[in-house]
Nucleic acid binder design. Structure first.
Length: 755
RNA sequence: UGGGGUAUCGCCAAGCGGUAAGGCCUCGGUUUUUGGUACCGAUAUUCGGGGGUUCGAAUCCCUCUACCCCAUCCA
């Protein structure tokens, strides 16, 4: 497979971990809970986990995260396995189950208890919630946290044996009831559940919670990268806590999160999907309108198209909603090169060709010339045919290419016909067209010289087969649906008596077809029989004609409405304290700092004291303030001044070198980074790495000339007025000098050279 | 509201101090016996807002804003 040039952030992490030797081989896993049918969001996760394993020659497990006996079932296990296989992936070894680790998990829990890191709590649910505190108030610990190790061990064992009722006790980790991360306020590890587990049966009366089971299951399986969705970000702390506290033999897995998939005009939540199925708003979990794997599958989507789609949308951490058009593109793109073209008339209008007698059969290839596939069929033709009602217009709009009283049209693979007469019923509805054909115009040996604007699909009236066609549209009419009220009432249209050319049924060249000029269709795998064929519409063809006419109806000028510029509300800035204000005044007054820099320093005790210290060494208040508020501030964000590898004196020295132009600002940043890492003296770093600035034009000029010579395109662009390119040339020169050239000098020289 | 995240074109998304990738959508055009496909071309002087640092900022610093997640004995 071709790896795209730009890797996603997960693959970047994986590569780094492989390179650094953190892991020798990568091992991922797809760990759904078997409590519902998989949807395209799962497909994304499958594509990521199995895809990464494949790309880096690792392995990927399929694991059922089945720790909650009340929600899980084998039928979901089967559906999940099925989905992975359908998408074309193979899991490593056999399917794994968290429930297979219950014994091991129990042992780990005992270990935690023995370490004094876990306790049996006996608060009732409501009290426990109360004790947990809120996002703004810290929680407090239950009195049961004081229980002895022995008591905890005893209680936990009896919990396991089933001596207590549901909810009577739980096992909790002893972490921190005041933690800012709510998840860390002594999370539950085990709860009592007297329930039948679909696999473990009735042997267990305690079941581990996600936060305890998941990290350890990953560890047990030797997972290296535990990839999950964004909502588990807060759980990562527990993940790490459990694995670290248990003193496991390394290596251990690490969790990484990505944004879950959402697509407009549909829903992905289990709750909403379930509602649709339970209330009968769809025919079942495999209703072709549903974003479930089963639904897409029945609709006729191919695994390749779903995988391509997942590939196209990328992986990132921003919550976003992908346009369905992207999915539709993926399936069209896939089917275009694969499926045979046939003719089907959905809304028949009878055409009688007055000057034709007898019957004949046209030899019609299944694929257009641009598709390198072979195969053809016979298409019967006679005096009476049907065309699509839409393909005739008595009063055609501007730009109409099809049949009109004045405009001839070609019958695809057949003759050119001309309208002679329009027959209507009493209400004025068109019931039939009387037409004439040109015998010289037969497809493939047309000598008629007639020019037509288009070719339309048709079927022979006597030999066409009647088929049922199910036309699917988006399930919801709202882009971000919230419930049943947003349902699209026209999401399913059933056409009972569409007419199709006989070869489709008798020859069966495929299961998926393109009905020419209409879209891609799939022989419904459940309801189709040769006697009563049923086709599902997978997706329509791109239709720039109907788009144009509809756009004209809606907005005659068809311009994109100007987007209102986002209005930014300015928030309140916290006022300064008196002392801060005094400091601020001194900085802006006496020292001449600009107010922004002074503000940053005055408000930050750590920064200002660091700054004051640098001042005692060197008397250039402004430059010092700049480096302190920008570079030092970054280091001081998560550290105390004492933890820094460098000190104020060294910063002053660094600034001094900039001031006397020994090094450029650019180099100063580089040196600073080194200082932050190693704590070495700036002068030493500069000397070791030979970073002294080059300002001599005679040294720089040749390099500039070289850069100019090797980038003639950009020179031309620059001279044509693209002045931003100046930065490009400066950058190139700096790159070749390892950043040592004096950028100011380079700027001047480049500008002059390019003039 | 405390904590954790996120913000780059209509929709996704690269980018990690030196020319704002790419795909979808849209709009033109060429080819076409599918108003399809393919092909060519257009579409971000600007990266949520405002400041600062720098010769140079989407990238570093400060600040504000918006949205998402967390107070299930669910996962």
């Amino acid at each position: 497979m071709i790896m795209s040039k730009h890797k996603d952030f997960l693959r970047t992490i994986v590569e780094e971990d492989l390179k650094s030797g953190k892991y020798k081989e990568i091992h991922t896993r797809f760990p759904p809970e078997p409590n519902g049918f998989p949807h395209i969001g799962h497909a994304k996760s499958i594509a990521i986990n199995f895809g990464i394993a494949r790309d880096y020659h690792g392995r990927c497990n399929l694991r059922m995260d089945d720790t909650n006996p009340t929600t899980e079932d084998t039928r979901y296990v089967e559906a999940l396995k099925d989905a992975v296989q359908w998408l074309g992936f193979e899991w490593d070894n056999s399917v794994r189950y968290t429930s297979d680790y219950f014994d091991k998990l129990y042992e780990y829990a005992i270990e935690l208890i023995k370490m004094g890191k876990a306790y049996v709590d006996s608060l009732d649910e409501e009290t426990m919630r109360e004790y947990r505190g809120t996002v703004t108030e810290p929680g407090r610990r239950s009195k049961y946290a004081e229980r002895s190790v022995e008591e905890n061990l005893d209680l936990f064992e009896r919990m396991k044996k089933g001596e207590f009722k549901d909810g009577e006790h739980v096992l909790r980790a002893k972490i921190d009831m005041t933690a800012a991360n709510m998840k860390m306020r002594d999370p539950l590890l085990y709860r009592i559940r007297h329930a039948h587990h679909y696999r473990a049966g009735d042997t267990w009366h305690v079941y581990p919670m996600y936060d305890f089971a998941h990290c350890l299951s990953d560890y047990i399986e030797g997972i290296t990268h535990s990839i999950c969705t964004l909502e588990f970000e807060n759980n990562r702390d527990i993940y790490d806590w459990v694995l670290d506290e248990l003193n496991l033999t390394p290596p251990r897995p690490y969790q990484h999160e990505f944004a879950r998939l959402s697509i407009n005009y549909t829903v992905m939540s289990k709750r909403l999907l379930l509602e649709l199925v339970n209330k009968g708003r769809v025919s079942g979990w495999d209703d072709p309108r549903l974003p479930t794997i089963a639904g897409y599958r029945r609709r006729g989507y191919t695994p390749e198209s779903i995988l391509n789609f997942c590939d196209q949308i990328g992986i990132a951490k921003a919550n976003s909603t992908v346009d369905v058009a992207q999915l539709e593109f993926a399936i069209r793109d896939d089917l275009n090169t694969k499926v045979p073209r046939v003719m089907c008339v959905l809304d028949p209008l009878k055409v009688t060709i007055e000057n034709y007698e007898g019957t004949e059969e046209f030899d019609a290839p299944y694929y257009p010339e641009d598709i390198p596939k072979e195969g053809s069929r016979k298409v019967p033709f006679s005096k009476e045919i049907f065309i699509e009602r839409e393909d005739f217009s008595e009063n055609p709009p501007k730009g109409y290419y099809r049949l009109t009283p004045e405009q001839p049209v070609r019958l695809r693979h057949g003759y050119i016909i001309t309208c002679k007469e329009v027959i209507k019923d009493a209400d004025g509805n068109i019931t039939e067209i009387i037409a004439a054909y040109d015998p010289e115009s037969k497809s493939g040996r047309d000598t008629s010289g007639i020019k037509v604007k288009s070719a339309i699909q048709w079927v022979d009236a006597n030999r066409a087969k009647t088929v049922e066609v199910r036309l699917y549209d988006r399930l919801y009419s709202s882009e971000a649906p919230e419930g049943l009220e947003d349902l699209n009432p026209d999401s399913l249209k059933v056409i009972k008596d569409a007419l199709i050319e006989p070869a489709v049924i008798t020859e069966k060249p495929d299961e998926r077809f393109q009905f020419e000029r209409q879209g891609y269709f799939y022989a419904d795998p459940v309801d189709y029989t040769d006697e009563a064929p049923v086709f599902n519409k997978i997706v329509g063809l791109k239709d720039s004609w109907s788009k144009k006419t509809k756009a004209n109806e809606r907005a005659p000028r068809g311009e994109r409405k100007p987007q209102a510029k986002k209005v930014q509300v300015e928030g309140e800035v916290e006022p300064m304290s008196e002392a801060e204000q005094a400091l601020f005044d001194r900085y802006t007054g006496e020292l001449g700092l600009n107010s922004m820099v002074a503000d940053i320093l005055a408000r930050d005790e750590k920064l200002s004291s660091f700054y004051e210290e640098t001042l005692t060494v060197l008397n250039t208040p402004v430059t010092l303030a700049n480096i302190v508020t920008n570079e030092v501030a970054r280091e001081l964000k998560e550290k105390q001044a004492e933890e820094l590898k460098f000190n104020a004196k060294q910063i002053a020295e660094l600034v001094k070198m900039v001031n006397d132009e020994t090094i450029s600002n650019k180099i100063a940043k580089q040196v600073f980074e080194e200082m932050a890492k190693s704590g070495a003296n700036p002068a030493q770093i500069v000397e070791d790495k030979g970073l002294v600035q080059i300002s001599d034009p005679t040294l720089i000029l040749p390099i500039i000339e070289e850069v100019i010579a090797s980038n003639p395109d950009n020179v031309a662009k620059f001279q044509a007025g693209n002045t931003k390119l100046l930065g490009f040339f400066v950058g190139q020169v700096l790159k070749t000098t390892g950043g040592k050239a004096n950028p100011q000098v380079v700027n001047e020289l480049v500008a002059e050279k390019l003039k």
